[in-house]
Design a protein around this nucleic acid. Structure first.
Length: 1010
RNA sequence: GCGCGCGUGGCGGAAUGGCAGACGCGCCAGACUUAGGAUCUGGUCCCGCAAGGGUUGGAGGUUCAAGUCCUCUCGCGCGCACCA
């Protein structure tokens, strides 16, 4: 403790009340059909003592949720308590309004740091995880948050992840039916005719397909099926599941002998050790989130999230409308589909580009498009001057070189750093479906394998990337869209006929620095069947797409940036998959779900948490665990950290249920809306809050950082929709209202970091100024959503405010006695409550009628605090409390009723101090009192706030000249004449004509003179 | 490059289109004190002795009236980034 004197004995008050809240389970939330004990303040408040309340009998719910933390070894930083304080204030406010408030906390405890620590120390990650949770819990509890700790969850607890695995099985056993646009059990899946078969169909499946509908309902009859068909059916079924297996490229680091996550790879090197990494295809589990792209996008319109957050999700989903167009290869059956948003520019496609990883980028002999030898000069189409640098004697040689180059680049290098485009000619050609021209096929890493079809038609005249590429490699550029200042305005003499166009294109290249990418009017776009010329871009798109469709060469398509979710990790400290692998008769491995009775699947104990030298995940080291007696093998991947956080908000509803992931009734009570409920009919008469809760769906308010704007929040919405489709939850969206708290920066306005040395430790703050002051300051700093710098001096400001509150209530003499007693008595905590009893209530507080001025001051404060809380404006609510205290300090005698109400307003912000003073106030007057946490929120009376004399500003030509006093009920005419009569005003209107007088009733007078 | 958000005293920040700067920090002066990094009182946007004038990044516009609405511009922050 530094030299400064303590403003008030928070060091005794805070632990005292935390203990009481703990012992009484004050903040326990009650599920439908739970029996409410006698004496619990919630039961008392709602007259439910000893009763078993049904959903209908319980007061309306309010579910207010924090993003649960990853309990790192570093402990809490000041960013955590920002959101937690905001939600705690609202939780307390909503309780006072009469809601049944669910406000839980838990631990997102699977994850990499614990595992890395385990690798270093050979200590089980469970140990570090438990230590870290203990630290976090102690710190969070010391701040006096009103969590219902009976619902605490830990994602690494087998009792929890049993249900994470269970939900995975729901995903595994479902498919997305495009006809119904929702997930359905895999048993509803229809097989293609050739796979619809029954036991009599040996070898003749297709002939019997007509009768199969009656005979075969689903895959359950497989034992009757011939092995071959069954395995084909299985393959089909497996390809439709929401959880499926595929080969996907991952970062492999040879030197570390492990797979790395994207964020562990920096500039093509491993973040740890700076070793090279390569993309390597590995067998991976995926979740079919793309099936939900449209719903995830559309349903954003139904939830109350910030504009910017919705925008981030929209960008991530990346919907774009366009067409898929097929390009044929001459003398070959191959058709290469491309996705384009500008089908109207098809006539201007002068070459094609495939991603280096594209399937058809293989030698012709191996089923690809790359020919054995380079085309002869005479084999090249007209106008191609340059086919790029031949870096190898054969096309495949060149392509291979380039593929290796590209695979070694990190995403960063492939995008940001690669200013100059690279690529090689494959020696192959395709036919432009619009004009039948032979166009060269290139590969280049500016085309991404993961977007669209992994191939593009290049229109250098109207796409900047294609333009850059064409310019570099001397490829043809043709104008097919004119800016609209007349067709062909940009190109002189561009005419039909390829030679002329290409000649014109070369001219263009010389003259233009950039492609024309905007919409315009088509030119040079016609063939024998169709002409787009003179059509504006939108019409041209429609016309060409229709034509392509009629010719079977393409169709209208919607494409998404969103990819399926790579769901497996080669890690130890995560949920094992409830999956085993088996071999069929012909020795092929297939996967199968474990039965629900096998859950939870626990990770095996290990000595070494590293992957195996041959790249198997760490779980593969546990041979006894992997190999089951029947010859099947367990899946050795684990789930990513996101898995546990995808549904934790549902587990809180019924955290201890070992029969189901959540009880249906509890789910319905806490997640559904009950329209029009007003928690406390006799409570606030104020306008309906914007803070959810009224007709809201799902969690009423969810507060957390923007760092989870896409991943967690998208994944959780996805899981929730699957559970909704399958009938396990009752709302389509999990989080109705979501608020991102802004970052708290260091005192130097920089992001807090150990390296900068500007980290503020919440423990230090709480020790020096108390939890209440710390909480108050976190909120007083500025609007919740804004980024704002920390200032320890600022903490002192609110700390002093709490000291003033203290002195407002207590008798100074007794306070001094207490301090002396405290220093002489060897203060050990058991004596603390007794010591606190030495402090008496201030004699200035009396049982008396408040004066009109006092009432007005109080009601102004009630109104401001209430309205600000409804809009999450904590900083201004606190300033309203300060205004009241500054005012009340000047009162010689203080009416106890007003002081009591003030404590209720203070309670959500500084609950410990408020409880202590509430207690003192009531015992001094020997009034019976209920727990402050459940005391009814005060109402303000608007009638009391009406001023009887108004101060009306008077402006002349918009400039303030005087302020006049007028009775509240003054008429507009009176106001006008009083204003005109003002001496000050007269000076400014003298010698001028009054043109107009604006009178805003109760507000202002503006005199316009000329 | 694209998208989103934000620019107000020395600082954090207040202001349903209606008195710009609430509240707090800091600073200045005073009171009580052996003392103050405690407490209390007063002051504190800029220019000016004053009357008055100026002021919400900058320039225009709408309006009786603009920090607030519109257009352009500059600066800062965040997100996405070769997405065809």
């Amino acid at each position: 403790m530094s030299g400064s004197r303590r403003q008030y004995p928070f060091h005794l008050i805070e632990p005292k009340w935390q203990k009481i809240w703990d012992e009484q389970q004050t903040f326990r939330a009650w599920n439908p059909d739970e029996t409410l004990p006698h004496g619990h303040p919630f039961a008392k408040r709602h007259a439910l003592e000893g009763k078993t309340a049904s959903t209908a009998e319980l007061p309306p719910k309010f579910y207010i949720l924090d993003m649960f933390p990853y309990p790192s070894g570093a402990g809490l930083h000041v960013g955590h308590p920002e959101g937690y304080t905001a939600t705690d204030i609202l939780a307390r406010y909503k309780r006072a309004l009469g809601h049944n408030v669910l406000h839980p906390m838990g631990w997102d405890a699977f994850g990499l740091p614990a595992e890395q620590y385990a690798i270093k120390t050979r200590q089980h990650p469970r140990q570090t995880t438990e230590q870290n949770i203990a630290t976090f819990k102690r710190q969070i509890k010391s701040l006096g948050f009103s969590y219902d700790w009976t619902r605490e969850i830990d994602t690494t607890d087998p009792k929890y992840f049993k249900w994470t695995q269970w939900i995975f099985l729901r995903l595994y056993n479902s498919w997305f039916n495009p006809e119904t646009n929702r997930a359905e059990p895999i048993s509803t899946l229809r097989y293609p005719p050739e796979l619809e078969a029954d036991s009599s169909s040996v070898g003749q499946a297709s002939r019997l397909s007509q009768t199969s509908k009656e005979n075969s309902k689903d895959g359950d009859r497989r034992d009757a099926c011939p092995a071959e068909i069954e395995s084909a059916r299985r393959a089909y079924r497996d390809s439709k599941r929401l959880a499926y297996v595929t080969e996907a490229p991952v970062w492999w680091c040879e030197s570390l002998g492990t797979v790395l996550a994207n964020e562990e790879v920096v500039d093509g090197k491993s973040e740890v050790g700076d070793f090279p990494v390569v993309r390597k295809p590995m067998r991976q589990w995926m979740l079919r989130i793309t099936a939900y792209a449209e719903r995830l996008l559309n349903d954003l319109d139904t939830i109350d999230w910030s504009h910017s957050l919705k925008e981030m999700q929209r960008n991530w989903i990346g919907r774009s409308e366009g067409a898929e167009v097929e390009f044929r290869i001459p003398n070959s059956e191959f058709r290469i589909p491309v996705f384009t948003t500008r089908p109207d520019t098809l006539f201007g496609a002068t070459y094609m580009v495939l991603a280096p990883e594209h399937k058809l980028v293989a030698p012709q002999a191996a089923g690809g498009v790359v020919p054995m030898s380079w085309p002869t000069k005479s084999g090249l189409p007209d106008g191609i001057i340059n086919t790029g640098s031949y870096t190898a004697p054969t096309p495949w040689g060149a392509v291979q070189q380039y593929k290796i180059l590209a695979s070694g680049k990190s995403d960063l290098e492939r995008t940001e750093l690669a200013k100059e485009k690279t690529g090689v000619f494959t020696g192959a050609f395709a036919l432009n479906p619009a004009n039948g021209e032979r166009i060269p096929i290139w590969i280049a890493d500016y085309v991404l394998a993961s977007y669209g079809t992994g191939a593009i038609m290049a229109v250098p005249g109207h796409d900047q990337r294609d333009f850059d590429f064409a310019t570099r490699f001397g490829l043809g550029i043709v104008e097919v869209v004119s800016p609209g200042d007349g067709p062909g305005a940009r190109l002189s003499g561009a005419a039909a006929g390829s030679a002329a166009k290409i000649a014109a294109g070369q001219e263009t290249r010389a003259r233009l620095k950039a492609a024309f990418v905007d919409e315009g009017v088509n030119v040079n776009s016609s063939n024998a069947e169709i002409s787009l010329n003179a059509l504006p871009t939108p019409d041209a798109k429609k016309k060409i797409t229709g034509w392509l469709e009629s010719k079977g060469l393409g169709k209208r398509t919607i494409n998404y940036k969103l990819r399926d979710w790579l769901f497996s990790r080669q890690r130890y400290w995560g949920e094992p998959f409830p999956i085993v692998w088996k071999q069929d008769a012909s020795g092929n491995w297939f996967h199968e779900a474990l039965p629900e009775s096998a859950l939870p699947v626990l990770p095996p104990p290990l000595e070494d948490y590293k992957p195996t030298p041959d790249g198997q995940p760490p779980l593969a080291r546990a041979k006894d665990w992997v190999n089951l007696p029947d010859g099947s093998r367990r899946e050795t991947n684990t789930m990513p950290q996101w898995a546990g956080s995808c549904w934790y908000y549902l587990r809180y509803l019924d955290a201890k249920n070992d029969k189901a992931f959540v009880n249906k009734e509890a789910e319905r009570y806490w997640m559904s809306s009950r329209r029009g409920d007003e928690a406390d009919k006799s409570g606030a008469t104020n306008p309906p809050p914007h803070v959810g809760g009224y007709g809201a769906q799902g969690v009423d308010l969810y507060v957390g950082g923007t760092e989870h704007a896409v991943l967690h929040l998208l994944y959780a919405r996805f899981w929730h929709k699957v559970l909704f489709d399958l009938g396990y939850v009752s709302t389509p969206e999990p989080f109705f209202k979501l608020v991102n708290q802004g970052l708290i920066l260091g005192e130097d306005n920089q992001k807090m970091s150990k390296a900068r040395g500007n980290v503020v430790n919440p423990d230090d703050m709480a020790n020096e100024y108390g939890a209440d002051a710390f909480r108050l300051y976190e909120m007083f700093l500025g609007p919740l959503q804004d980024a704002k710098p920390w200032s320890t001096k600022g903490v002192v400001g609110v700390y002093k405010f709490l000291g003033r509150v203290w002195r407002l209530f207590v008798d100074e003499e007794s306070d001094t006695e207490f301090e002396q007693a405290e220093t002489t008595a060897n203060t050990q905590i058991p004596e603390a409550p007794k010591l606190l009893e030495l402090i008496k209530l201030s004699p200035a507080i009396q049982d008396m009628q408040p004066t009109p001025v006092q009432i007005k001051t109080l009601h102004a404060c009630i109104r401001k605090v209430t309205e600000d809380l409804d809009h999450l404006r904590f900083n201004t609510a606190i300033s309203a409390l300060m205004v009241f205290v500054n005012e009340a300090m000047t009162w010689e005698t203080k009416p106890s009723s007003a002081m009591r109400t003030f404590l209720q307003l203070l309670a959500p912000f500084a609950p410990h101090l408020a409880e202590e003073l509430w207690d003192k106030l009531h015992s001094a007057f020997r009034t019976p009192h209920s727990a402050l946490s459940y005391a009814r929120w005060p109402k303000f009376d608007p009638a009391l706030l009406v001023e009887d004399t108004l101060e009306i500003p008077v402006q002349v030509n918009g400039k303030l000249r005087d302020v006049i006093k007028a009775p509240a009920e003054v008429s507009q005419q009176q106001l006008e004449s009083t204003a005109l009569a003002s001496e000050k005003v007269k000076q400014f209107i003298q010698g001028k004509t009054v043109k107009k007088v604006i009178v805003v009733p109760q507000k202002l007078v503006n005199i316009v003179v000329g």
